[in-house]
Design a protein around this nucleic acid. Structure first.
Lengths: 229, 229
DNA sequence: TCAAAAGTGTTTAGTTTACACCCATGC
DNA sequence: GCATGGGTGTAAACTAAACACTTTTGA
């Protein structure tokens, strides 16, 4: 089977930068090891070709699941990379997405076609295939700026979390210490968290667990509320 | 001449949303009237197919110049639209860009191939071709959020401008009145404007003209300064 | 009773908002 | 001199930062 067109067309792919936070509050990304040339055995972002009848978001979600088993997570379009020589096979334009996941829910799984997958610290990345380092840099930049103005940080935590966990998340991604008292006051005054229960069996005063209230946030946003950390 | 591939490929286009401010401080966009089907005679964003050897930004800049004569202006990637049925001719994925121009420098010019071009108020848009209304909405949303955190507003003004012009620009785009005194204090305390000269022949106290100092801004940004209105 | 982390009260410093006034020009 | 927009001083209100304290639990 082959397909013929009057004018040449680039290939279209999607690539995903998947972020997670590890136990020691370090930002990590999930990479896969390529099985085939070009860049065989090189670490790369999961991704692949866009099918003719699926939209771009679906393509990103499908590739994410096929190559890492991850599904039902936050995915958002990042940027489209189209430098003419970014792929040695010819003209390939890639629509990059980034995903935020709770790392604990997604331990390293052998990917579908026997390639390895591994969570790397963003500060200790191996050499990446294609222009994936550029995509990575763009994604990290986007994450660090966006997390201040949009409540997307919750996507990196379990559904129920403590305020300390949330604060530590922001400390990690923003790269600076935040005052405990002031962080609490600020986040609580926003009125977008729902208290659900208390920690149990911890050797210290049990913390309350909270859940991000999406509906409340949507409502407040409509009324002019602006999220900002 | 024809081109044959093993797998089907979508067509790849770029589209441009071009913003300008008119004399009465209204936000406008430059649209062109389509000469051919689909959507013949319908208003649409300037755009066209990406050539095989040009990068995406160059394609956007080229199409902008070919269809409107505008060149050397601020252009930035917006978002990539790829819904399977967005174009009745088949699968067409479009990388959208937005441009900011000083409207006075670009009066309505007959576009290269005899189509009409016209500056429309964003609040009074005609029915647009394809999914261009969606692209437009996305661009307006991006402009209004981005202008608060990045010094891109200057791109809509002449090179030399008064503080009143700048304030009125923000009032237009943010859709609310800003206190004259406080706006001045804020913008001047940023130390990113360079005073160049004074107005002449105005029937009131002449205002100072300023120029945005890109170098200074870059320097300050490196030192941790964050622009915000 | 001790260690560990959760959670609170309050002062201080800094920033933003609001309002009222004076200034320079052309006609 | 008057209409028009340019430009300034400052008090009050609000918000963020800093710091020291009390609480609750398991071991």
């Amino acid at each position: 089977m082959s397909y013929t067109y009057e004018y040449p067309r680039p290939s279209l792919t999607v690539d995903c930068v998947i972020f997670g936070l590890d136990d020691s509050h370090e930002l990590r990304v999930l990479l896969i090891e390529r099985a085939h040339d070009p860049y065989a055995d090189c670490w790369a972002l999961p991704g692949g070709f866009v099918d003719m009848h699926e939209d771009l978001y679906s393509a990103a979600a499908r590739e994410l699941e096929e190559e890492t088993g991850i599904r039902n997570v936050f995915i958002e379009q990042l940027y489209t990379f189209g430098a003419p020589k970014r792929d040695p096979r010819g003209r390939v334009v890639s629509v990059a997405y980034y995903a935020l996941v709770n790392l604990k829910d997604h331990p390293v799984t052998a990917a579908s076609d026997a390639k390895r997958a591994e969570w790397f610290k963003t500060k200790e990345l191996p050499k990446l295939a294609f222009d994936h380092q550029l995509i990575m840099d763009t994604a990290i930049e986007r994450l660090t700026t966006k997390i201040r103005y949009q409540p997307i940080g919750f996507e990196l935590l379990p559904e129920k979390f403590t305020l300390s966990q949330l604060r530590e998340l922001y400390e990690t991604i923003l790269g600076k210490a935040l005052n405990k008292r002031n962080f609490r006051s600020k986040i609580m005054s926003m009125d977008i968290l729902e208290q659900v229960e208390q920690q149990k069996d911890v050797p210290h005063r049990p913390a309350y667990l909270y859940r991000f209230n999406k509906k409340k946030y949507a409502q407040l946003t409509k009324e002019g509320f602006v999220f900002e950390i």
